[in-house]
Design a protein around this nucleic acid. Structure first.
Lengths: 237, 237
DNA sequence: CAGTGGTCTAGACCACCAG
DNA sequence: TGGTGGTCTAGACCACTGT
């Protein structure tokens, strides 16, 4: 935990707990730096993070202000790190996995293109049903190159693939690309997600990248329409 | 133009023009700082931007490397600006608007909370059907505070609200918050989007912010499931 | 061990804005 | 003019890596 991270945590806490008047600027950078016993640069870096999360905004010559709408709808935790996997995102819930399919195959042309590999690089083909508090939640179809993410087994699939990648393989997940769409359910959805005939499905197509820019995962997550929504924040530079 | 911006431009140019070997680390921060006659902190800041764009990645103890896939597929300009509005996003298409409703009202409690206003601040209530190349595309229900975005009229609604905000009111749109979900169609969708009975709808709930952190728009866009998908890019810090 | 990036400092000067 | 945030510096120490 770096100094700027812990300062950032504390300031975020204060804002959420209304320790600072919502219609006033928060204390200036120099005062805060003194209070936290750090340099102004470090203070600025901590505040930069909160600005990038949409919690604060600055006015040169005026001060730093709270974005009121950000804390009025309990939407504060929207800015979670997305690269965590379901097991970590819902860690206060009981998340289980049912392995529907777990195979190795040569990838199709489409898979090759998305994973930036050739057709002779084997990939895992995994279908998992994720169950949250006993209810079917999402059906995940995942392709991962065996060369990049080796050693997948049933035990890992029953827990968190992301934990395995980050902690056992010690790889860094740098980012992701998502395409979100609505579609009609197919037979697999009916079978595992307990859909009614006309329930829509929220499908998230996902490409995950490591910090060397190499894609390691191409997946389709099919969600029950009444159990999931995607939240995004876009701030211009 | 700040120093770190101009350095950033120059390094980006060198990478794209293959001035640095693609399979080698680029020069270390101290050498680059000397070359550009700046401090190491400033150099780091310039490189940080390129890392956040996915053009470079760093390995502690090793050096700074070029993300090969970033410059191999002309993907350099992926970081497009989303805050443009439909009229600009699809400017090579024929986008028309049909005004279904255009009223002024006092906002409900929910609208107040999302726009950070009180219940006596009037808002526009606008429903528009956007038609692309003659086909119904999206049904937009929009709330905007009259005080922040004054002077809306039919002419503006038939064109681009975003153009009006940016060019006539000269306000800067800083960011947005989106919630994306799948849902079943309602009567308004059947009537205007030419939905079949069981066609899902992709709904995007949207809050737009100005650069002072004030929300100026709260909207629900209901899309035909076969005509629209949302694309997002997420890069970790 | 030497070399890399990551963090942090104490202080400087500038740009912007209100009274 | 005073106070704010924005940029930049020169240097320090730390964490991590391969030799």
């Amino acid at each position: 935990m770096t100094k700027y991270e812990s300062i950032c945590l504390e300031i975020r806490k204060r804002i959420i707990e209304r320790k600072y008047p919502i219609d006033q600027p928060i204390p200036d950078e120099i005062s805060l730096a003194k209070e936290f016993n750090c340099s102004r640069m470090t203070m600025k870096r901590a505040l930069d993070i909160l600005v990038s999360e949409g919690l604060l905004y600055r006015k040169r010559g005026h001060g730093t202000f709270i974005v009121q709408s950000a804390i009025q709808n309990n939407k504060v935790n929207v800015v979670t790190n997305e690269a965590m996997g379901l097991t970590n995102l819902l860690k206060d819930k009981n998340v289980k996995s049912k392995i529907i399919k777990f195979e190795v195959q040569f990838p199709s042309e489409d898979i090759c293109a998305h994973l930036a590999i050739d057709s002779k690089t084997p990939v895992y083909y995994i279908i998992r049903l994720r169950i949250v508090d006993g209810e079917p939640y999402v059906l995940e179809k995942t392709y991962m190159p065996v060369t990049i993410i080796p050693g997948i087994n049933d035990e890992i699939l029953n827990g968190s693939i992301y934990d395995y990648i980050m902690n056992k393989l010690v790889l860094t997940i740098a980012g992701s690309h998502r395409i979100i769409r609505a579609c009609k359910p197919d037979d697999l959805d009916y079978e595992h997600l307990a859909c009614e005939l006309n329930d829509p499905i929220l499908e998230v197509e996902h490409i995950g990248f490591l910090n060397n820019g190499i894609p390691f995962e191409y997946s389709f997550s099919r969600h029950r329409y009444d159990k999931f929504e995607v939240t995004t924040i876009n701030m211009n530079r």
